[in-house]
Design a protein around this nucleic acid. Structure first.
Lengths: 193, 193
DNA sequence: TCATAAAAACAGAACAGTCGGTCTGTAAAC
DNA sequence: GTTTACAGACCGACTGTTCTGTTTTTATGA
């Protein structure tokens, strides 16, 4: 039930934005009663915070399969955009991040979790990729830069002069990252997470 | 009067976010009557759209003074962050861009203006800076990348592990740009805009 | 094993407050 | 004298939240 509610919330955030994501809309989208939603999530912030936590959990894995070798940096950037950031969940996360900036209650609920997610996300990267300088901190800096670029791109996407231009930006950025970041040479990368 | 209303709107967007920016709040912040605001801006979208146009006009100049030589790329990135993106106006713009994604009425009012602003912004850049490849399109791509990164950084700012880490990210990105972009050699750069 | 109590899961009505938008009224300007 | 600039009351719709019921699940103890 909670999963059903949060999925409906993601859809609403993606299609309607944070402001228009109301209890009534989520309830209608999920096809449930009003009581169900307020029982599990007494406030709007609680609903959105729970949805964010769920999304973060799902966004951790799909980029680096445990069984296969890490994909090249270029492909990593491309699939991060297509499968994570520019997805319903990714767009919902951006709505939530923006709301966090001005909603202290929501910020308080998510601050710690987002910090921890950020940290574990970075350590997943530096277990598989390494900066050209060989410095681990630099690896994490580069990935942070990439993540912020992709999120910023989400805001600009609808105003890009043409779809091809967006492709060119992605390609240009991925090539720039490629020159700074590389797949870690064959090591044992088992004991991660 | 319109300027007073729009300034109050910027403050509200910055402090309260798009969802909580209401006619009542703007009215109170500007210290005017309800009639004044609805007279000039009949809908909330019209108010926000007019505010956006005003902000875009202000955000065009300050990075490249006409009288002095263009600043180095590193400084350009740094001052774009400090003076444009991470300012009250910059944060308000991001709120508006996010709202545009899900509000068709607002999007319709701003789409054309934002596209034109983007174009003129890019031509201002390529009049003073050039990609290491010498290609003008590449220059514009690089600047688009920088702008999107800075906007994305705005969403992440409150969750960064430490203030120093943010400085490091800025520094790392600016150095990366520095290696791809350079100040255009002394030419006549008068007939711009 | 099963009766039973306690708790959790849901349903839906009700609430006060606020929203965006419209309306009439007045003063000033052109 | 017609239009524009402002003032402020008014409105229905909708907001997030609280509340009282009803059903289902879970825990308990003999």
């Amino acid at each position: 039930m909670q999963a059903k509610i949060c999925n409906a919330t993601v859809t609403c955030l993606d299609h309607l934005g944070y402001a228009e994501t109301t209890f009534a809309k989520v309830q209608a989208k999920a096809g449930i009663s009003r009581g169900a939603i307020t029982h599990h999530f007494p406030t709007k912030q609680a609903l959105v915070a729970a949805t964010a936590m769920r999304l973060l959990g799902n966004a951790q894995n799909p980029l680096w399969p445990h069984d296969r070798a890490p994909q090249p940096v270029y492909d990593l950037i491309m699939s991060a955009w297509a499968n994570i950031v520019n997805s319903a969940g990714g767009r919902a996360i951006v709505e939530i991040l923006v709301a966090c900036r001005t909603d202290p209650a929501l910020f308080g609920m998510l601050e710690q979790s987002l910090r921890e997610w950020d940290k574990s996300n970075l350590s997943l990267i530096s277990a598989r990729y390494v900066s050209a300088t060989g410095n681990r901190d630099d690896t994490e800096l580069l990935w942070s830069i990439a993540r912020n670029f992709l999120r910023g791109l989400l805001l600009h996407e609808k105003f890009v002069s043409s779809p091809e231009y967006l492709t060119q930006m992605m390609d240009r950025f991925a090539r720039m990252m490629e020159s700074q970041l590389q797949v870690l040479p064959e090591n044992d990368v088992e004991e991660v997470e």
